[in-house]
Simulated scan of single mutants.
Amino acid sequence: MNIKLSIYTALVLSLGWACNHPKQEQKEDIEAKEVEQEEISKVTPDVTTELVKHDTDDPAIWINPENPEESLIVGTDKGGDDGDGALFVFNLEGKILRDKTIENIARPNNVDIAYGLNLNGKATDIAVCTERYTNSLRIFSLPEMKPVDNGGIEIFKGEELRGPMGISMYTDPATGNIYAIAGRKDGPKDGTYLWQYLLEDDGNGNVKGTLVRKFGSYAGREIEAIAVDSEKGYVYYSDEGVGVKKYYAHPDSSNVELALFGNGDLFTEDNEGISIYKHDDGTGYIIVSDQAANIFHFFTREGSNGNPHEHKLVKSLYASTLESDGNEVTSVAIGEKYPEGFFVAMSDDKTFQIYDWRKVKPEEAQITAQK
């Protein structure tokens, strides 16, 4: 069904009264905003996962190369104040796989996945999450979910402000090197907010991390969501309350900000989780959560008007998620149920929600109209 976007309108109205603006000015502002807003569709999930114990935050998708229908969703449960968080593992029916779920992680925030890290001479897929209370990265092999981090990799060493939150993995197409790009709860405003680590075998079959780069501007609220487009070589992150920022992902690249989008009054409050839907021809979508409004905004992956750094909005979608932080998406065909892949998003009711991509994707008419 279709409904009008009214949350922002209500916010404008309440702020107008609070600031004692003239009624006529209030009315004109509200009417102008309503004219700009298009009808936004709302969809319901195909699958809702079983409940976690405390507080869902961020999902990642592992594609089973031998049988995509046996792929997994790995999701963080931040846990309580005593640090009893977890990495929950679900099948595509949303059932918790208890034998793979990792408990007693001290405040895991975000999680991401990389394929083919060389450990003990074997290509190993890994799930990597931040563990905030120990200032570490935790790393587990897939699909077994066995620890391969020797108890954790300490990050942001020497910093007063540490508290890791966001994480995203970059695989260099030329060398196959795998890097973790991590953000934190708070940090400096001197362009070194994100730290990038090369992940490799420590000689004993565990993963070690070597700091190779510091980059990224920060406005001062929080940076949690990070997403990397390895094929194109870009990293995106949500500088909350400001917009989505874009840099090169390679550690030897310049630290110049390439783009800022999703800024202005598009987001109701915080721009949050980011995921990237990828077509083989380089096109696709950058999907960003409008957390307070329960909306997801879709931007052009390839850019617009011949400019690879002009990421135009092509669709906004109401989902059934509540206060969604993290999301992930895949374009890999998953049997007859998800022939174009699926989208999964965290919901603030201790679940993750899975959506058939065909239900959420922008239509060609929408894309053409925005280019």
Rank of each mutant, 00 (worst) to 15 (best):
M1F: 04
I3F: 07
K4P: 01
S6Y: 00
S6P: 00
T9L: 10
L13Q: 09
G16D: 04
C19E: 14
C19W: 06
A32S: 06
K33H: 11
K33C: 05
E38D: 13
S41Y: 12
T44H: 08
D46N: 12
V47E: 10
T48F: 08
T48S: 15
T49M: 03
H54M: 08
D57H: 14
D57I: 07
D58R: 05
P59I: 09
P59M: 05
A60F: 10
I61H: 05
W62S: 11
I63F: 13
N64K: 07
P65A: 04
E70H: 08
L72R: 13
L72H: 10
I73M: 10
D77E: 03
G80H: 10
G85C: 01
N91W: 04
N91V: 03
L92M: 07
L97S: 04
R98H: 08
D99T: 10
T101V: 01
N104E: 15
I105Y: 02
P108K: 01
D112V: 08
I113P: 07
L119A: 08
T124H: 02
I126Q: 05
C129E: 01
N135W: 03
L137F: 14
F140H: 11
P143C: 02
V148Q: 08
N150I: 03
N150Y: 04
G151S: 06
I153M: 15
I155A: 15
E159N: 13
L161I: 01
P164Y: 06
S168G: 12
P173R: 09
A174N: 12
I178D: 02
K185A: 04
P188Q: 07
K189V: 10
D190F: 03
T192Q: 12
Y193D: 03
L198T: 02
L198F: 04
G203S: 10
L211V: 03
F215D: 04
F215A: 05
G220I: 06
G233Q: 13
Y234C: 07
Y236F: 14
Y237T: 07
D239H: 06
K245C: 06
K245R: 15
K246L: 15
Y247I: 11
E257T: 13
L258I: 08
A259E: 12
A259H: 09
L260M: 14
F261R: 12
G262S: 12
D265P: 00
D265S: 14
F267T: 09
F267D: 09
T268S: 05
E269Q: 12
K278P: 07
H279P: 00
D280Y: 08
D281A: 06
G282A: 09
I286K: 07
I287K: 04
V288I: 12
S289Q: 14
A292D: 05
I295E: 15
F296E: 15
F298K: 13
F298N: 11
E302L: 04
N305E: 15
H311W: 09
H311S: 10
V314L: 14
K315P: 08
S320H: 14
S320C: 12
T321M: 06
D325R: 00
N327F: 02
E328F: 01
T330N: 03
S331D: 13
V332Q: 15
V332W: 10
A333E: 11
K337A: 04
Y338G: 02
P339I: 06
A345N: 00
D348R: 10
K350H: 10
T351A: 01
E363H: 05
Q366T: 00
T368C: 00
A369R: 05
